[in-house]
Design a protein around this nucleic acid. Sequence first.
DNA 1: TATCATTGTGTCAATGTGACGCAATGATAA
DNA 2: TTATCATTGCGTCACATTGACACAATGATA
Lengths: 266, 266
Amino acid sequence: MRILILLSSMAAKRNIESIVVNGASIFLPSVSVDCVIFGFHDNDMKVLLLQMKHTDEFGLPGGFVLKDEALDTAATRVLQERIGLTDIFLQQFATFGEPNRSDKKFHVKAMKKEGITIDKNNWLLQRFITVGYYALVDFSKVIPRVDELSVSCSWFHLQSLPTLMMDHNHILNKALETLQQQINHQPIGYNLLPQKFTMPELQKLYEAILNKQLDRRNFQRKILVYGILKKLKEVKQGVAHKAPFLYSFDVKKYNQALKNGYTGGW
Amino acid sequence: MRILILLSSMAAKRNIESIVVNGASIFLPSVSVDCVIFGFHDNDMKVLLLQMKHTDEFGLPGGFVLKDEALDTAATRVLQERIGLTDIFLQQFATFGEPNRSDKKFHVKAMKKEGITIDKNNWLLQRFITVGYYALVDFSKVIPRVDELSVSCSWFHLQSLPTLMMDHNHILNKALETLQQQINHQPIGYNLLPQKFTMPELQKLYEAILNKQLDRRNFQRKILVYGILKKLKEVKQGVAHKAPFLYSFDVKKYNQALKNGYTGGW
DNA sequence: TATCATTGTGTCAATGTGACGCAATGATAA
DNA sequence: TTATCATTGCGTCACATTGACACAATGATA
């Protein structure tokens, strides 16, 4: 076992070294993507965060953009590598480009501990702007993965987030704000809930995103008039108290609403 | 006169040559900003477009980001250089990064006609992603300026836009969509109208942005409850028919609404 | 079998919205 | 000078939406 760890550690080092050395010829300079991955579990919104090797700082999963890769594709690739999911809801929400947002010492320190010396002109130490994406994923299907640069990859409650590296707290807040806006204009839930769900579950999701209590009866009325739900003939099994009906999304109408948005306003 | 043009043309060439040669050491690689500048005039929304020297293609005013410059600052600088205005409403709305969005032949061709040979490894010919900003400006105060790379800089009706270079039509459309969304949630007009304006003028602005007719009486009722307007005691001078009252924005409440947004939704 | 948290359904008043009426105004035409 | 008429200011009305709350039905647990 010890040997395996050592071997994998050596392999990891070679991989990292390769990226440090060859990154400049593989990746688009100056540009990265960062993903805010939202999941819903136990009536709570959660975000997937990494803890970085060597420095133990927390951060958003991110990555670089290949020379010939679209931004969206890069974000999708990061998600794929990180949580093993494809075909999820992904949305670009903002780009962050303060000149001092990168923490250059971070890479130097981390690489040093990895046993890699990094030239001060190395591409990794240049300034980066980052394009922020947020993803909505089905918590239950996610398999968080640790990679060579991180020691953990796990979910955090929105209410008890750690301090994040660089400007990642800012990025996360902006993602949440955007999500809170979106929920007013387009349906949300298809990517966060299981296929079949109850009205109280859907309501809890909305409450978690908006961080605010909603009236049970008014919520049901309002969500139903959007016409994106199908009421099933089954009720939830194995619950205490009265069993609530199950619903599922009417995918066709859901996607239509995603595209056109709810009205409201002018 | 002939000599002056020749001189300025030579100076321009030297400037451009300097940027081509030194750009890589001055600018952040791979990143540009593009600005969609909206103005309101003659009851119509207009956009400021450039016509490029040598190729005669139309495009959005844009620029590169200095090595140590924030993205927002770069956009502000472009506006400042282009229309001589500071202190305007500027908002980042999306970032565009398809790998094939840049037209490499464009630069080669343009530079060739300028008499500048450009190496195929030159930074200008690399792939760029661009951060889109839209600006709302007071049409009457704008002084469009032609620079060394363009032959014209002028306003176009939204309804009769020319075909733009690269993906600029797409960028412009996205900016307009964003603006149409924003108008539902935050006040708009302070940066597009003169200090004093009439209710019909404000309505025409909304109609131009939304590209849709609004009922005069309902519009007034709705806009007034937002509480961002101050009704003045004067009426518009020198108009045919009944003189409408003048209004101005209540700057304090306007900014408050800008920050908090109108409610609506959950 | 009684209890009780939870669900399904509905009511009601207050507010917001869309469609439209009508008199006042004041430049222009007769 | 007076009549005309496009435009403005200020409403009304029916209808939809919203927030707050009532009450009976359900069905696991005590």
